[in-house]
Design a protein around this nucleic acid. Structure first.
Length: 256
DNA sequence: ATGGTTGGGTTCCAA
């Protein structure tokens, strides 16, 4: 079984690339972030023609998340948004596939550490943490996939000195990431790869992708029973080379 | 050096 995550930065623009990618990479579950569209515009028919169904939580202009899954699977116990947290931004969707619980999240970016958006980010991280603790108690086989907007350590940053203390790399954000790890959610990419210089996002500006100046901020975290089944976790850089690419590229985990 | 590019929406915001 394969699970993947991809921040598509507008599903409207990227739908052809998503369909191409699924044709070449027929994963079982694909978590999408930054749909940037309302639910009435979600491309259910195009995905159905490709053999996929989806659950989604969109909104106009910003945010928006979806779980796309093979039509041989059944999604149950779907939740949209973090329970008991009144947040107008559509950033979380979760669904069960048998015993497997999939949580797809678009973490707050935060803009800068002195921004109100950073305060929102830390609040949001706290709410997510509580929600995941509850979820893990109910679903031991839990995978958390998404754009975390956190580079867990300096290996995940092209210029660690330049990024030190900045948003995406700050101590508080990294501490929040480590609290997820302490909960039992392992960074599956790091489980298989110790090397640095492997990124999932590159700024559109200044030819950052061509120069491989990026950050690893898209992650797949696995609870212990799933980590035990994990066979590989890979970043697929190919879609970042497309014309009109997303600024993020997919991450894929293979479970036995 | 506070730049640069993209998407969505609209006279700029978010990333």
């Amino acid at each position: 079984m394969q699970l993947a995550t991809w921040n598509v930065n507008s599903l409207k623009v990227r739908l052809p690339q998503v369909l191409d990618w699924l044709a070449a990479n027929p994963v079982d579950v694909l978590c999408l972030q930054e749909l940037k569209q309302e639910d009435h515009a979600f491309p259910l028919e195009a995905l159905a023609a490709a053999g996929y169904r989806a659950e989604f939580a969109g909104q106009k202009t910003y945010n928006g998340v979806a779980i796309v899954y093979r039509d041989t699977l059944t999604a149950t116990e779907v939740i949209k948004d973090i329970p008991d947290y009144d947040d107008p931004q559509r950033r979380v969707i979760a669904a069960s596939f048998g015993e497997l619980r999939v949580v797809c999240a678009y973490f707050v970016n935060g803009e800068a550490v002195d921004s109100d958006k950073y305060t929102y980010k830390l609040t949001w991280l706290g709410k997510l943490e509580r929600y995941l603790a509850d979820s893990l108690a109910r679903w031991p086989q839990l995978a958390l996939l998404g754009d975390f907007n956190i580079a867990p350590d300096d290996r995940d940053v092209y210029d660690p000195a330049g990024w030190a203390g900045k948003v995406l790399c700050s101590e508080s954000e990294r501490a929040a990431f480590q609290r997820l790890v302490a909960m039992g959610l392992a960074d599956s990419y790091r489980h298989f790869h110790a090397d640095g210089g492997q990124y999932s996002w590159w700024d559109y500006r200044a030819a950052m992708f061509r120069r491989n100046l990026g950050l690893r901020i898209d992650h797949i975290l696995l609870s212990p029973p799933l980590l035990a089944r994990a066979q590989s976790c890979e970043i697929d850089r190919a879609p970042r080379k497309n014309e009109r690419p997303s600024d993020h590229t997919p991450v894929v985990v293979t479970l036995g």
